[in-house]
C-alpha cells in the first residue's frame, strides 16, 4: 500500500514539475522568438516580391500578428493547450502532424543508436574497469576521450567520405532514393540509410556510458564487499559475474535514460549531415527558414522527450534497486 502511494506522490510531483517547466519554456521560447528579427510574414511568403504590402498586411491580420505580444502569447498558449499547435510554414501542414511523422523517423535512428551505445559502452566500460591500468583499459579510455572531443557532425562527414564515397558501401545521403515514392521504399533501402547515421550517433554516445561504467567498476572492485568476496575465495571471474556486472548495470541504465538530451542534440547534427528526414533536420530547417510555429512545437516536444527520460531513470531506481524497493515495503 505504502509503496503505491509513494510512487503516486512521486509521479504527481514529477507531473507538476513538468507542467511548470512546460509553461516556463513556452514563455521563454516566445520571448526569444519575439526578440528575433525574423518577420513571420516574410518567412511564410518567402523572399518573393510578388506579394504586395497589402497582402502582407492581410496575412499579418489573419494571424493576429499586429496585436500586442502578451495577447498573442495567450492566444498561442491557449491553442497549444487545446491541441492546436498551428501550421508549419515550410511544410504547410499542422505542426503536430509534421512533428509526429518526423519524430517517428528520428525515433528509429535514436533507438538504434541508444541501444547500441548503451550495450557497447557498458561492455567496454566493464572491460576497461576490470583491466584498470592495463593496455586494453588505456585503449578504451583513449577512444572515449577522443570521441568526447569529436563533434558528431564531423564524425558523420568522415564516415560519409570513407564508407559512402571511398568505399561505396552506403548511400551518400537522403533517406529515400530520389524519384521513389515513400511507400515503395524497401526495408533494405531504409536500413541502408539508417546504418551510417545511427552508427555515428551511437559511437558518440558510447564515451559517456563507458567512462562512467569504468569508474563504477573500479569503485566496486575496491569496495569492501569485493574484498570480502575475494577473502571467501571467489575468483576474479566470479566476482565480475556475480557482483560487478549487477552493481554497475543499475547506474549505467539510469545514465542511459538521462542521456536523452544529448541523444536529441546529436540527432540534430547527424540528421543534418546525412540529410536524414527526421525531427533534427526539421529543427534546423525551421530555425533557418523562420518556421516559428514548428520550432516552438519542437522545443515543447524535446522537453517532454528529455523529461520522460529523466523520469524513467528515477522510476527505474525505485523499481529495480532492492534497497529502495524493499525499503518502501518494510
Amino acid at each position: 500500500m505504502e509503496k503505491r502511494s509513494g510512487l503516486g506522490i512521486f509521479l504527481t510531483k514529477r507531473l507538476i514539475k513538468l507542467v511548470t517547466l512546460l509553461v516556463a519554456i513556452c514563455i521563454v521560447t516566445f520571448v526569444l522568438l519575439e526578440l528575433s528579427p525574423i518577420d513571420p510574414v516574410t518567412a511564410y511568403v518567402g523572399a518573393s516580391t510578388k506579394v504586395g504590402a497589402e497582402q502582407r498586411a492581410l496575412i499579418a491580420e489573419h494571424w493576429g500578428l499586429n496585436k500586442p505580444p502578451i495577447e498573442r502569447f495567450m492566444a498561442w498558449f491557449t491553442s497549444i493547450i487545446r491541441g492546436d499547435w498551428g501550421t508549419s510554414m515550410i511544410y504547410r501542414r499542422p505542426v503536430l502532424e509534421v512533428i509526429g511523422q518526423k519524430f517517428l523517423s528520428s525515433l528509429a535512428l535514436m533507438a538504434v543508436a541508444w541501444t547500441l551505445s548503451g550495450v557497447l559502452g557498458f561492455v567496454l566500460g566493464i572491460i576497461a574497469g576490470v583491466y584498470e591500468g592495463k593496455a586494453v583499459d588505456k585503449v578504451i579510455r583513449a577512444y572515449c576521450h577522443i570521441l568526447i572531443s569529436t563533434p558528431s557532425f564531423w564524425l558523420g562527414i568522415l564516415f560519409i567520405m570513407l564508407f559512402a564515397v571511398e568505399l561505396g558501401w552506403f548511400p551518400v545521403a537522403i533517406s529515400v532514393p530520389i524519384g521513389v515514392l515513400a511507400e515503395d521504399v524497401s526495408l533494405a533501402d531504409r536500413l541502408s540509410h539508417l546504418i551510417l547515421p545511427s552508427l555515428t550517433l551511437s559511437l558518440i554516445g558510447i564515451s559517456n556510458i563507458c567512462l562512467h561504467t569504468r569508474q563504477k567498476v573500479v569503485d566496486i572492485l575496491s569496495s569492501d564487499f569485493v574484498l570480502f568476496a575475494k577473502a571467501r575465495g571467489e575468483s576474479k571471474r566470479s566476482i565480475i559475474h556475480n557482483h560487478v556486472i549487477k552493481n554497475a548495470s543499475l547506474p549505467a541504465i539510469t545514465l542511459q535514460f538521462l542521456s536523452f538530451s544529448e541523444l536529441f542534440g546529436g540527432a540534430v547534427f547527424v540528421e543534418q549531415v546525412f540529410s536524414y528526414p527526421g525531427l533534427g533536420q526539421a529543427t534546423v530547417q525551421s530555425g533557418l527558414r523562420g518556421d516559428l510555429p514548428l520550432l516552438m512545437g519542437i522545443v515543447i516536444i524535446s522537453l517532454i522527450f528529455v523529461y520522460v527520460g529523466n523520469m524513467t531513470a528515477d522510476l527505474l531506481y525505485m523499481v529495480i534497486d532492492p534497497r529502495i524497493k524493499e525499503g518502501q515495503m518494510a
Binding site: 517547466l21 519554456i25 521560447t29 520571448v31 526569444l32 522568438l33 526578440l35 528575433s36 525574423i38 538530451s261 544529448e262 536529441f264 542534440g265 540534430v268 547534427f269 529543427t283 534546423v284 530555425g287 520550432l295 519542437i298 522545443v299 524535446s302 522537453l303 528529455v306 523529461y307
Partner: peptide, 15 residues
C-alpha cells in the same frame, strides 16, 4: 537542462 543544449543555442541565436 530540460531542453537539449543544441536547441537552446539555436533559439538564442535566432533571438
Amino acid at each position: 537542462l530540460s531542453v537539449p543544449h543544441t536547441l537552446v543555442i539555436i533559439l538564442v541565436s535566432i533571438a
